[in-house]
């Protein structure tokens, strides 16, 4: 863990502009939580207005929602543009420094590794490492989702502590089951896939580099069969991952829908007892959705950040090679 943080810090130091990253991440932080709050409040007021037959209040809620959405997405779009530019320059800085460093190594160092290894260091490793800030769920998403979890939790506690406990039971058991039966085995299975993919690439390399010899000695079928075997092995390993992902999908349906049903039934009892309005129950569903989505996003982001570490470490390793120039 500590070495991962150090490796990430080293890479950020190499790319520079860390302060700008912090500011942009802070600017991104409130968006998800604000969107949940706006949507939950809109639905709560709208359903309360419908239940009480107050059309004026309904129109007012709708108008306010429209204006808030406009500002919210305007804000998000602006931050998105600034962030995207930052990330592009950040990736560019890493690429520039890496290329400069590798082009300053000695021929002896370069020839000590296969050509494919250097191409991977310059292209694939950068892609893998910069996924930290560049892919769908990344480091800032982890921070944004964490803020979303905290804000929605506080609101849920204030609205109805019992319902919050109920939601937490479902969310926590969902996360626990996910971690035990999906996330952890996935890490191990991903390594197997990487090995199988490397083997498949090696077979392809043999097929390309030995293509002339293969024609002369009529061993194309032999090489092709070896390639097919490695490709089928790769498919087998990937299907093991798919099996876990299918389990994840099933678990999501089970926990999501059953949690919904249980809250609805408890909500029914509270509404019947006059302790809650239907509008409030709808808002609780929205906050629950925010909490669940935030938790999932948080876990996925952390997993992605962790898998990006392999690229980060390889970049740092490349940058630590002593230059001849």
């Amino acid at each position: 863990m500590h070495s991962n943080i150090k490796a990430t810090r080293d890479m950020f130091r190499m790319a520079g502009r860390t302060r700008r990253f912090s500011i942009l991440t802070l600017l991104r932080c409130p968006f998800d939580a604000l969107r949940t709050i706006v949507q939950a409040n809109f639905l709560m007021h709208a359903f309360d207005a419908i239940n009480s037959g107050n059309l004026n209040e309904l129109y007012h809620a709708c108008g306010l929602f429209g204006v808030l959405c406009l500002f919210l997405f305007l804000y998000n779009g602006t931050v998105w543009m600034l962030y995207a530019e930052y990330v592009t320059r950040w990736v560019g800085a890493i690429r520039r420094k890496l290329f400069e460093h590798i082009s300053g190594l000695s021929l002896q160092q370069v020839e000590a590794k296969p050509t494919g290894e250097w191409i991977a260091r310059l292209n694939s490793d950068v892609n893998a490492a910069t996924a930290l800030l560049n892919q769908n769920m990344h480091l800032p998403h982890a921070i944004v989702s964490f803020v979303n979890i905290c804000v929605t939790s506080v609101i849920l506690v204030l609205v109805n502590p019992e319902l919050f406990s109920l939601i937490i039971v479902f969310v926590a058991s969902h996360i626990l089951l996910n971690q035990l039966f999906i996330a952890k085995p996935l890490m191990r299975l991903s390594m197997n896939v990487q090995e199988a993919a490397a083997e498949n690439a090696a077979e392809m390399n043999a097929l390309i580099t030995c293509a002339d010899t293969a024609i002369l000695y009529d061993v194309q079928d032999f090489l092709l069969k070896r390639f097919e075997k490695s490709s089928l092995e790769l498919r087998k390993e990937k299907m093991k991952i798919q099996h876990r992902k299918a389990m994840e999908s099933g678990l999501l349906s089970l926990m999501g829908m059953s949690g919904y049903l249980v809250i609805l039934l408890f909500g029914w009892r509270w509404i019947k007892a006059g302790l809650m309005t239907f509008g409030e129950l709808v808002a609780v569903f929205q906050y629950r959705g925010g909490l669940l989505a935030g938790s999932m996003m948080f876990i996925t982001s952390l997993m992605n950040v962790r898998s990006a570490q392999a690229g980060v470490k390889r970049i740092n390793e490349t940058m630590s090679l002593s230059r001849e120039e």
Partner: peptide, 23 residues
């Protein structure tokens, strides 16, 4: 509850078969 269980099963099946086709 039966619908929830059916949805869970079908989600699993859909993910498996689509994964198999893609692989």
């Amino acid at each position: 509850i039966i619908t929830v269980i059916a949805c869970m099963t079908i989600s699993y099946m859909l993910s498996m078969i689509s994964g198999w086709i893609c692989e």
